[in-house]
């Protein structure tokens, strides 16, 4: 349970962002409103499961699964 990331979420599942494990990527994600403590919800996935779409701070953000894996959640 300790190292769960946004990439592990199921559709409709909610989670709170804890930290990031890739500093370069985290700068972009922070700017897009993925802040530690913010709640995210997995909104939908592309048919092959990648990329994914997240609801975060009131809008929809899409990213690749590899990028989602850098966002660790509680």
């Amino acid at each position: 349970m300790s190292k769960r990331s946004v990439a592990d979420l199921k559709i409709g599942e909610r989670a709170t962002i804890k930290s990031f494990n890739d500093q370069w990527m985290s700068l972009k994600l922070l700017e897009m409103g993925c802040l530690p403590g913010a709640e995210v919800c997995l909104h939908c996935k592309a048919p092959l499961g990648d990329p994914i779409c997240l609801n975060v701070s009131g809008y929809c953000l899409s990213m690749r699964k590899s990028e989602a894996a850098t966002i660790l959640v509680e």
Binding site: K28, C60, L61, M63, E67
Partner: peptide, 11 residues
């Protein structure tokens, strides 16, 4: 140049 696909999905 690292490729990335962080993209806002417009309504």
């Amino acid at each position: 140049e690292r490729s990335f696909f962080i993209m806002e999905l417009p309504t």
